[in-house]
Design a protein around this nucleic acid. Sequence first.
DNA 1: GTCAGATGAGACATCATTGTCGCACGCGAG
DNA 2: CTCGCGTGCGACAATGATGTCTCATCTGAC
Lengths: 183, 183
Amino acid sequence: MSLDREELLSTAADVLTRRPTSSMDDIAKAAGISRATLHRHFAGRDALIRALEQLGLRRLDAALDAARTDEGDAVDALRRVVAETEPHAGFLGFLVTQNQLFEPGEQHEGWTRIDERIGALFRRGQQEGAFRIDLTPAWLTEALYALITASAWAVQDGRVAARDSTRMTAELLLGGLRRSGER
Amino acid sequence: MSLDREELLSTAADVLTRRPTSSMDDIAKAAGISRATLHRHFAGRDALIRALEQLGLRRLDAALDAARTDEGDAVDALRRVVAETEPHAGFLGFLVTQNQLFEPGEQHEGWTRIDERIGALFRRGQQEGAFRIDLTPAWLTEALYALITASAWAVQDGRVAARDSTRMTAELLLGGLRRSGER
DNA sequence: GTCAGATGAGACATCATTGTCGCACGCGAG
DNA sequence: CTCGCGTGCGACAATGATGTCTCATCTGAC
């Protein structure tokens, strides 16, 4: 039986995010397979990275679809984005930290599209008066990535309970840590 | 004249954070020196990494000192932390993304101390009633790291103006992105 | 000018990783 | 049982990074 390719890529993303210098052997071991088998599925390290990118981007795209980013209240939509994206935080972390792997300026097109979709949600929220307008959509997008990734790492390291992570991420992003509402 | 060791380490942190697989030669070139000279200053890659850790931790410690984390209003103290830490975001990013470089569980002692200092500030703010109590200090600490690092990257990539980064980071962390104050 | 110290350039052996094979094993389908 | 497929294991050469060394050059102090 052929092993689960997606699961393999998922663990590869985790390993590479945590320790980007991991060898192919490390990755194979982490996935519970031999280096030969890893090479049978991916021609080489480059091919593996590309596949990681592709799958990660597809997952994020699907997560944004599932979150229905342009339906209903912008606040609720953002909550859905956090909830839908968090399961794929391993890929998100990989994409965020490793997207500098390739040539200068040569940004993956799929990535800019994800950026655009999320940025659009923030702009919509601002236009509807739900979001502050003194924080730029570009920054909010970066912050969203960073918080989701950080949340996943914190869960992995046992610093945050898994059942709380989605709520804490969304709450901090939406309401900040200050208790009172005044500016 | 001996070159500026701290500046060298600073660029090394940037390079390694952006592209963790960089070779010693890459690092040397980025710093504008030859590989031989790099080796004269640091016995090897390991030694370089250790030095990076040490300097990064010292800088963060100094930044927390300068921020006077246990003086005055917790909100203001947090703003000072963001402002003082941001200049050393390169090191922070390195520490956050690469702290898995060494053995399992073997966390650098200095790092846990930094964690503790920041966690203490969040706890103080919660006790004083300034901060929400439904977000754990551990999570807030992780979020602070993530946001400062993300902010620095965003500036580097030109997605956020340098003059706005401190304000945007602190504002998002403190107040969140929602416009109205109600929960 | 002279000297000491630091640097850059290049050569070199060594080591780890990589990518490719061949071969044997196990397991499910027929 | 037998076959086919996927896998693990080990060996192998090739490649790139690493660490060390030598030598020439430069710069600042004296």
